Computed example of a mutant assay.
Amino acid sequence: MISDYIRTSSVSEVVDALVEYQPWGRILAGGTDILPKTRGVRQKKSIPLVFIDVNRISDFRTIKMENGWLVIGPAVTIRDLIYSNLIKEEAPVLAQAAALIGSTEIRNRGTVGGNIGSKNASADLLIPLIGLKAIVEICDTAGRREMNLEEILRKSVKDLGRRLVITAIKIPTGQAAYFGYKRWSRESMGRSYLSVMVIISPEIKAGSYRLKAIVGGGGLWPRSVEAVMPVQQLSATKSLTLLVKLLVEKGEKTNRRNMGDYRRQIMEVLLREALYTACEGGRF
């Protein structure tokens, strides 16, 4: 059952509340993920669930530039990402990805921090944020610290919203790179079945480019591969063949969930489209 509901106005209040109400304190922002996930718990009178509302923390709902970083508050909604002029200018691929998420209701209520902390491999923002080299600022009783998003997914994702508070998402600006993002979903479910992002960036060594591909969604946690190619060989066909080969090999080596033939075919189609988009951006 819900034994208490607490409105906080500072990060320290959130941290204190999580400590006080362990293990049943839960952060509440948009509520699109935490409410369905706690339905079973809320029906048990023996479990004193406590919701800790963070929507009154002003910094949590802002998008701003700070020392060369695009800083996004964890309670910023998906809709905010779509219509923010700062996002459109500094990270347009993030606005494009956000526009593909769920329904109007989900976009109006769902938050960036909630998407990251949902512990869901199908969370739509994981792929574009990893591709944009996002850093996540987190806080607990030991204070604030920063981790890149991929590291958090590997090490600390289970503690988000329970012991760890996401206080900001930071994206470096002025990246010399070209991005392509594609997503495929099952219309009946409205959730991402597979998402792909391709990043092409120039290497320090003249005449070569670094290719990076990230794939995830539908129960498949994000996996990424990289390769360096001379600009003369940077064609969509050669790049596609190489990236597919590397992604399949990585999946086999790490013993992760198998893609299967059907998903692999979808991945190849999405990779091709994302590659064309990135190549068009760089006029390759």
Rank of each mutant, 00 (worst) to 15 (best):
P128F: 11
G113L: 07
I169R: 04
L153Y: 02
E89D: 10
I166M: 05
F179R: 04
A91G: 03
L126D: 03
G143D: 04
I214A: 09
W184Q: 10
A91V: 03
L164N: 01
A121I: 12
Y83Q: 09
R109S: 11
P92I: 05
Y181D: 02
I152L: 11
A177T: 00
K158Y: 14
E90P: 13
N120T: 10
K155N: 15
L149H: 08
E203V: 14
D159K: 13
L149F: 10
R107G: 04
R162C: 09
E150L: 08
Y83D: 06
I106C: 06
G207H: 07
R186L: 14
P172D: 07
M147N: 13
A134K: 02
S84E: 05
R191Y: 13
Q96D: 14
I82V: 09
E89M: 15
N148L: 02
G161Y: 08
L160M: 05
A97W: 08
I135T: 12
M197C: 13
A177N: 02
L126S: 08
Y209N: 12
V196E: 04
T173K: 03
R186G: 12
S192I: 10
N120F: 15
M197V: 10
A99V: 02
A134I: 06
S103I: 05
D159N: 13
D80E: 04
N108M: 03
K155D: 15
A99N: 08
G117Y: 09
K155R: 12
A97T: 01
T167D: 01
Y181M: 06
G114F: 00
T104N: 11
A121D: 06
N108Q: 06
F179E: 06
I166T: 06
E90V: 14
G113N: 05
A134N: 04
E150I: 00
G216R: 02
S201D: 00
R109T: 09
I82P: 00
I82S: 06
G114K: 00
I200L: 11
I127L: 09
I152Q: 04
I135R: 14
N85T: 11
F179S: 05
M147C: 13
D140M: 09
G217E: 01
K170G: 03
N85K: 14
L86G: 03
N120L: 15
E150A: 11
L125M: 11
D124K: 04
K158A: 15
